[in-house]
Design a protein around this nucleic acid. Sequence first.
DNA 1: ACGGTTGCGTGCGACAGCGCACAATGGGCT
DNA 2: AGCCCATTGTGCGCTGTCGCACGCAACCGT
Lengths: 255, 255
Amino acid sequence: MPTVLTNRLLAALPAAELKRLHANLELVQMPVGEVLYESGRSLNHVFFPTSCIVSLLHVLENGASSELAVVGNDGVVGVSIFMGGLSTPSRAVVQSLGEAYRLPARLVMEEFSRGGAVQHLMLRYTQALLTQMAQTAVCNRHHSVDQQLCRWLLLTIDRLPTAEIITTQELISNMLGVRREGVTEAAGKLQKLGVITYRRGHIEVLDRPRLETMSCECYDVVRRETERLLPVPSKAPKAPRMAIPVRPRSYEQRS
Amino acid sequence: MPTVLTNRLLAALPAAELKRLHANLELVQMPVGEVLYESGRSLNHVFFPTSCIVSLLHVLENGASSELAVVGNDGVVGVSIFMGGLSTPSRAVVQSLGEAYRLPARLVMEEFSRGGAVQHLMLRYTQALLTQMAQTAVCNRHHSVDQQLCRWLLLTIDRLPTAEIITTQELISNMLGVRREGVTEAAGKLQKLGVITYRRGHIEVLDRPRLETMSCECYDVVRRETERLLPVPSKAPKAPRMAIPVRPRSYEQRS
DNA sequence: ACGGTTGCGTGCGACAGCGCACAATGGGCT
DNA sequence: AGCCCATTGTGCGCTGTCGCACGCAACCGT
């Protein structure tokens, strides 16, 4: 059973703040492919993931895209609400199914403007997000597809209860902003080395330490900076408590 | 003579707030190459540029780098101070000489925590910065050096009083995270087309409209979103009032 | 006026990633 | 059990960018 404490940001809040929010936090299912917000459109809620993973994508006019950041139970989706912009030119898509608590924009702004712990925490998280985006930007320029795939796998399994990722190479290629064939090749190498195994729509990380050495520095830089800004509170686990219930049929859902 | 109003963020503040800050705003010279903050080191001031341009760079372990955003008289350098992180893994370097007002970190935080217009404005600016970084990240991945050079030139002259940029192709290549030869080639094409002219250390934009058509969409996306978030206040000019005093000797300075 | 430094031009070969086309196979679905 | 479609594998040729190694020329300082 997930609780609000499964989200690390919520878990880091003082009891008083959390209590105030608690009644308005609504647990929602997050099917793969669901778009939480679209470039330029107004946001109605912020989302605190517990077991899902959300990708922040930036899409170009010709449809090409790149993932700028990943949000799991370590963060919140929709920072532009309290930053005052209400929308962003980015898109947020559910990348791995699961659940999240959502909170209406109005209440977020209200709570944020009190200036207390909520504000501090949200701003610190936003800075962590900034760092992730910055590192991703440089990574896009300077690192190989092989390295970036490693980085992406690490970022993803950090936010999952198990080392198995349910996704296709095509979707990964959209995230990384590269060709699907490039991912096929990179994944093939990793499998040959025994670092991962995969079958249609599933990737399992077998040798995580090895994966870390093969990844570019970007993974570690982001992880360390995130921990500096948002130390893992003792009352929340680092990964979701519960394994995600396996419901194979719904993996295919796109909305 | 520059005034605090030459910086568009300061100009957008209500009179009361501005008055409170005014006594502590110190006008400082910004020589080219000066590092305002370094990856991971604590910041002591925020800077409100009036006539200088500051580049936000992210540097990798091997020394490779990319520019994530440009800040001129439209913004502020050092957002991590009020975001609560105090430092970032990025670097801020003066890219074009000029002046800026600086404000001690302590006073910024104090003013920010009042939660008034200063907070709102700083947060909105931070979101604009986020957008610029996001767009740059995707641009790094998907657009050619030619297009990116156009984007960079536009971003730069928007923050200068004239269409002449004092810099070397080598420095531009560092900003874009590409080879110097790549910039030479791209600049050569633009010169052949009559869009720019250049001589050692100087680039002049001759045909701005043409440059815009040759640039990728990224320039325009960032400009529009920035204007949405931070409308140009009528009391401040869009470009600095004063021409930068030409002091050729100091262009070579690196600190 | 003149030398030296610094910035620009150019010409390689190498190669990663692209775009396309198509074969092959896994695994739901009926 | 078998079909069929989504997913993965593979093989091209092509292009943009890299890395390196120069030559050249503009400009600065003396």
